[in-house]
């Protein structure tokens, strides 16, 4: 059993708590115990302190990491912005003497010290490293045989690879989320815009139309090339865009299809048999039908194997 500090961020606990619930349900059964990091703040996200003052960004991020250090655990987070920010912070502090000094001086103001004893993991990376596709497959109740998944990893879990403890062999052709979905026995084909940005984040708050333009291209690529039954994301911001942004495009008549979206651990929890009212309850694009198909008698793994 490994114990990890769950870093929640903002979107997951405040807007998408069904994703939080999917971590709390699925991970302990797979051998990852979660402890809370009480008092953790926003990472802080790219549009806030990182856009204003570099040392202050690093100090607020480092404070968050010290919460895990105090509990002697590694950090695990499901938000890609949080992962990118915290991993980048750790990398800068540990490779740049000047910034490290500046951060320690700032942390001294609140009686804290950065030690560097906690590693930072994305939840996909933690599942891949500490559980692995084989064990995930052993633990599922329902399989996704003959269902097609389009994966969307999310930028900050891919680049820059130099700041990450777990690396993709080639981040421009990501395979970790693919293997984790294959562990649920789904088909996970390649599509041409597999690594393309969904358009969320700073782009969406700066220019909504340009942001939705990127999303539309990506969705059409998914529909026309692999006709996916669902989109599976590894990032809570991608979730908001691929689900909520897709609804906007659909309502405007810019696309004439709907593809349900899941965060990976939501799908994992559904395959493990957890209640969709708890682990997959907040969405714009309807998911009821696909959830009923997933949690159906004929998909029971023991029946298929029996």
């Amino acid at each position: 059993m490994k114990t990890m500090g769950l870093f929640l961020g903002c979107n997951i606990p405040l807007k998408l708590p069904d994703i939080e619930q999917s971590f709390r349900k699925a991970l302990p059964e797979l051998g990852i115990d979660l402890v809370d990091l009480e008092g953790a703040s926003c990472c802080p996200s790219w549009g806030t302190l990182p856009s204003f003052d570099l040392p202050t960004w690093l100090a607020v991020s480092a404070r968050n990491i010290t919460l895990a250090e105090a509990k002697d655990v590694d950090v695990v987070t499901g938000c890609n912005s949080c992962f990118g920010i915290l991993a980048e912070t750790k990398h800068i502090i540990e490779h740049d003497e000047e910034y490290r000094k500046a951060v320690q001086e700032k942390l001294a103001l609140i009686n804290r010290e950065y030690k560097g004893t906690s590693q930072v993991y994305h939840v996909l990376h933690a599942l891949y490293k500490f559980v692995g596709p084989e064990k995930i497959n052993e633990k599922i109740k329902y399989t996704l045989k003959q269902l097609t998944i389009a994966i969307q990893v999310g930028c900050h879990a891919l680049w820059p690879s130099k700041v990450m403890a777990i690396k993709e062999p080639n981040p421009f052709f990501p395979t970790i989320l693919k293997e984790l979905c294959e562990a649920l026995e789904a088909d996970v084909p390649h599509y041409s815009r597999i690594e393309a940005c969904c358009g969320m984040g700073g782009m969406r708050s700066t220019n909504m139309e340009k942001s939705l333009g990127l999303l539309k291209e990506k969705l059409i690529s998914i529909k026309e090339e692999i006709d996916a039954d669902m989109i599976v994301v590894g990032c809570s911001s991608c979730y908001l865009q691929m689900d909520g942004g897709q609804k906007i495009l659909r309502d405007r008549g810019e696309i004439d299809f709907e593809i349900p979206v899941f965060y990976y651990t939501q799908l994992l929890a559904l395959c493990m048999g957890f209640d969709p009212k708890q682990v997959a309850a907040i969405n714009e694009i309807p998911r009821e039908e696909i959830i009923a198909r997933i949690q159906s008698e004929e998909r029971l793994k023991e029946k298929q194997e029996g």
């Binding site: 807007k15 708590p17 939080e20 926003c42 996200s45 009212k277």
Partner: peptide, 26 residues
């Protein structure tokens, strides 16, 4: 609030999915 993204309705949303209303965050 300690959170860049904030939603006043968060306690209700959390309870709906079976979580305690308060987050363990800042």
């Amino acid at each position: 609030k300690g959170h860049a993204v904030f939603s006043e309705a968060y306690k209700e949303t959390r309870q709906k999915v079976g979580l305690p209303p308060e987050t363990p965050t800042a």
